[in-house]
Amino acid sequence: MSTLVLGAGGFLGLNIVDALVAAGSTPRCGRRVRSNVIPLRSRKLPMVVADLEQPETLREAMRDTKTVVHAAGYYPRLSLDYEGAIRIGRTQLENVLDAAAASGVERVVYVSSTATIAPRADGSASTEADGFASVPGFGLYHDLKWTMESIALAEQRLEVVIACPGACIGPWDLRVGTSALVVGIARGVNPPHPDGIVNIVDARDVGQLVAKMALSTTSVPKRVLMAAHNRQVHPMLESLAKRYGVAPPSAPLRADEAKALAFSEESRAAECGGRPAVSREIVDLIVHGAPVDASLATQALGARFRSWTETLDAFDDWARRMRLIPEQPGYWSTEHGSESITQP
């Protein structure tokens, strides 16, 4: 009986896979037919096709599986199709849970988000006990994550435990998701942003904690927050600008300005391709961000979160090797000479 990781080739998936291997496990790595499996191939681990839209592949992938780590929760690149995204997220998670129940899987570790943690009225740090009673209504990302987590929480056929990581920074963020602001600053781009609180966590710490939730032979908490540092975004970007020797970031946008810009940028990206200068998801996570208290992860799973400096140094080293961060802010050399950088 083994562990299957869905989304194994993705950002968190690779960190979870590495943590499982470090803990002595040999996970099977779920993948889509068409996906980047270069990092998985170099790890020499068994791969199996597990397409969340094709239940028969999930049932086959889950054969003889004791634990499924679901790190492939739907994550739309743009927030323009609300109904469609909610429908996809719901269907995919239902497919995973149905296949797990039919295959005799004992535990599913579902990787969710701190977006499902409700802010407290008094501004104090929220814990796992703080959930939204109904859909948050902040925007697609929060609503999608809440909808999917509600399905996971309601599952009765098998044990489902939920990991709620904050803004993950670390190696293997090849799509430059949550690290977009760090990469933007390091490239000498002035990233438009609102201000608010983000809950930073090292992706390697998340990998280790999710691996513990998967491998534990005793009961684990139903829902575990994974966040190490509650940081105000604008001062964090100012300190990053100093680190990279670039001009300080422009003043933060108001929430309504940031949402309008995100809508216009996402509309442009939908029409012309490329990525938006700022996404609605990032705007909502910052604008509605609240401090969280992840002490349950420390008490129940022995979490020892890395410092921000350690996280940033490791990310910087990896991102330079992957050419996501150039040797010199604003420019880097290519096989065709020097190229100006416009956006992450």
Binding site: R34, V37, I38, R323
Partner: peptide, 24 residues
């Protein structure tokens, strides 16, 4: 990346991500 990954699988090539990221 999907292209390079598909080629790595098609021809059974050992490709490192650092190398793949440099190809344009």
């Amino acid at each position: 990346m999907e292209l390079l990954s598909a080629l790595a699988e098609e021809f059974d090539l050992e490709v490192e991500m650092e190398e793949a990221m440099a190809i344009t």
